[in-house]
């Protein structure tokens, strides 16, 4: 296997509260291989967005801070990078797109200017070359009539077009990694499919590696190669998409899959996982999922399950994985 393009090791992010620091993201590790689409799945508040923002040190508030671990971009440590290098990394190596394209594009700047600004910031090219690149990248993301669209403002675009435009801005400098934070949540279903198709094309054609943050397992099934499932700031299971969706070992993963509307037998209500996801102030002890887990036993509330490899590429953190024989907790 080739060297991962991005590698997280034991990354922790804490929030400063009145009762002291609390971990929002707790020792999260995963690798992103070149050309891979990695799905980062979890409920709201599971720490998936914070993890990804920490990747380019773009934590949304000053009360959040990275408290441990390491992030390696092609072997280079991101957390200790100086400002100059960090600015090159952001946009140049790692691009980011967001959930709501409307609010993430500068409303008083034309699409063309926004793309050209990024190009000229990261590469020393003239106006002409930047403009050519802007047209190229708009074509790449499937915006018709790009020459004319350059002079449009974001409000003159439709929702799906804005998402394409935001992807174009992020791609303008040819990043190796694209972090897509719920890129399709704000879009209607048909446009969703188009944007996913676009992301997959970019991977197939240009070898882009993508981290796709989502809570929609349907999207994962359509587009991802690998999946990491997050719960309460920790990764509880990770592996190839087919393994995770077809043979989930963690009760939480299995619960998420069972919650899909299509999974319920005809005439039966859609299943849910009982209870609420934990909040920062009230993280359960031991395995964070145990209050909501049907398989939970005494050990689950006492000790945190360690991440173990079930297969070379399938890792799990659970004392009593699904399908395992009865017995005492695994060591």
């Amino acid at each position: 296997m080739s060297e991962p393009i991005l590698s997280l090791r034991e990354l922790s992010v804490s929030v400063e509260t009145r009762e002291g620091p609390r971990a929002l993201v707790d020792r999260v590790s995963f690798d992103l291989e070149p050309g891979e689409i990695l799905g980062l799945v979890g409920e709201s508040g599971s720490g998936k967005s914070v993890t990804c923002r920490a990747l380019i040190r773009l934590l949304p508030s000053s009360s959040l801070s990275v408290t441990g671990g390491s992030i390696l971009s092609r072997g280079e440590e991101v957390l200790t990078m100086d400002d100059r290098r960090l600015r090159r990394l952001r946009g140049g190596t790692i691009g980011m797109i967001f959930q709501n394209p409307t609010s993430h594009l500068d409303p008083v700047m034309t699409i063309g200017d926004q793309i050209m600004e990024s190009v000229r910031f990261h590469r020393s090219v003239g106006k002409k070359d930047a403009r050519a690149r802007a047209i190229e990248v708009l074509t790449q993301v499937g915006i018709p009539d790009p020459v004319h669209r350059l002079t449009n403002f974001p409000h003159e675009f439709s929702g799906g077009m804005r998402q394409r435009a935001m992807i174009a801005v992020a791609l303008a400098c040819d990043p190796e990694v694209l972090i897509a934070d719920e890129p399709t949540t704000a879009l209607d279903v048909t446009v969703q499919a188009q944007i996913l198709r676009l992301l997959m094309d970019l991977r197939d054609r240009d070898g882009l590696s993508i981290i796709l943050i989502t809570h929609d397992l349907g999207i994962v099934a359509q587009s991802c190669d690998g999946v990491a499932v997050m719960y309460g700031g920790r990764i509880c299971e990770r592996g190839p998409m087919r393994t995770i969706l077809g043979d989930a070992k963690h009760p939480y993963t299995a619960g998420l899959i069972a919650c899909q509307p299509g999974e319920a037998p005809k005439g039966q209500p859609v299943r849910t996982i009982p209870g609420q996801p934990p909040t920062v102030g009230a993280m359960p002890s031991g395995c964070r999922f145990h209050p909501r887990c049907a398989n939970a036993r005494a050990a689950c509330s006492e000790t945190q399950p360690a991440m173990v490899a079930l297969a070379p590429d399938h890792d799990l953190a659970c004392h009593y994985p699904l399908g395992a024989s009865e017995g005492g907790p695994r060591a």
Binding site: R88, R90, H104, F121
Partner: peptide, 22 residues
């Protein structure tokens, strides 16, 4: 704290550029 300012920072722009241009 607007989203497009976050987006500008995510593109690597420094504080001066974010202030003046965005």
């Amino acid at each position: 704290n607007a989203d497009f300012v976050q987006a500008a920072v995510s593109l690597g722009y420094g504080p001066i550029r974010v202030m003046v241009r965005h």
